[in-house]
Write a protein that binds this DNA or RNA. Structure first.
Lengths: 216, 216
DNA sequence: CTTTACTGACCGAGCGCTCATTCACTTTTT
DNA sequence: AAAAAGTGAATGAGCGCTCGGTCAGTAAAG
């Protein structure tokens, strides 16, 4: 199992056409993610994944090195989706004080929409080989980095008091994690308020933090 | 595997002495949690658990219905520990404005100390049968409930503005989750600040939230 | 156009193995 | 000697992954 650890990642096969390989890998990830969300990584069998993708286990292993490889594929595609969505809304948001609220709003909505996926990443990352775990964490960090950018931009324009680097970073992490929190606890929150209520309250929260000089 | 789902929980055995059973179950949980943290639930074998506990697989199964049973045992003992620690510090904390800061501080320190355990719960709860998953979530909620109490008490004494029920609840959840956040991201935060820095900054954060009337 | 040769995507039986669980037996306790 | 507690070899279901093989499609040779 996984002797050839020098390979950074990928393609374990004699098959030639690289476009086909890419397409197939996307198909596999797409089919696998549903199964992982429904049954978890461990209870999902490679045969199920093959079946859901629409071909045989033999073919599956033409495009994929191992079951773990599939999990990484899935995690990566989720992060790509989230990042794309966040980046998009950041561009639309512009800068200035409202921009922060707008970005928070869009991000939280993304979290709401993607909550199954976010949950999956929290729960199954551990099953990845350590090198790939690290990559997943880096992806996570890159998304948080987007919030750092937004905050820094707003501070520059003078719409927020001079927060030091640490305060900005912490605020960014808080945004990131409070978005995730919705996915963890929606089963509970859902009974009391809607995602819009949640966004409104947390935005107040985050803004009130950013509006005072931090002692850190 | 697990046919007899009517049983709410427990003892699957012919052994009579209930005290012994309880003691053995605690021993098992204690041994298992270390292994789960180190290798994860799925990669830990029942034999390893038996060995670590100091007896045979046969005996293990005298005290435990299934591997999942062990996982639940572990989750439950973790929550019990956390709850006890939080309750203790709450009593010492008294009431008034500082009390909140004090409770936050102690709770975050608990999170720091227990971070491996908290991580474990996030990651392995999924492997539990649904009924027990629900119990784990309820445990989580009970801890959050402690913060609700503290906040409500402080509001009553007039040391905080009149927060409505929802705001209090949200603040409580935020405390809870921002504590967990340290365990998820300590690998990153650890490079930049200590747990004390973290506590100081987040306390400012949470207090500034509580000090303004919330629109929710 | 027909025949032959070749390619590579796809298939799935089955290998090798792991691991949770059981139960006939032994040891210890009462 | 009876009951309780403890043992570990044996079981068999289930899994990830491999590999010899098929065959539609394309290219080359006639």
């Amino acid at each position: 199992m996984m002797q050839d650890l020098n390979r950074t990642n990928d393609i374990p096969t004699q098959i030639k056409n690289p476009e086909l390989v890419e397409r197939r890998r996307r198909q596999i990830a797409q089919a696998a993610v549903k199964l992982f969300i429904k049954n978890g990584f461990h209870k999902t069998t490679t045969r199920q994944i093959a079946q859901a993708t629409g071909f045989s286990i033999g073919s599956l292993y033409e495009y994929v090195a191992s079951k773990e490889d599939i999990l990484y594929l899935v995690c990566d595609s989720i992060h790509t989706d989230v990042e794309r969505l966040v980046t998009d809304t950041m561009e639309k948001a512009g800068s200035g004080r409202d921009a922060l609220a707008k970005v928070i709003r869009e991000y939280f909505l993304v979290c709401d929409r993607m909550s199954d996926f976010i949950l999956l990443i929290y729960q199954e990352t551990r099953s990845l080989p350590p090198q790939w775990q690290k990559r997943v964490l880096e992806n996570e960090l890159r998304i948080t980095g987007l919030f750092v950018e937004v905050l820094a931009r707003i501070v520059e324009t003078g719409d927020l008091p001079n927060l030091n680097e640490h305060s900005i970073e912490l605020a960014a992490h808080n945004i990131s994690v409070l978005g995730h929190m919705w996915t963890f606890r929606r089963w509970f929150f859902g009974r009391h308020y809607t995602i819009d209520d949640y966004i409104r309250m947390q935005t107040d929260y985050i803004l009130s933090m950013c509006s005072r000089k931090n002692s850190g």
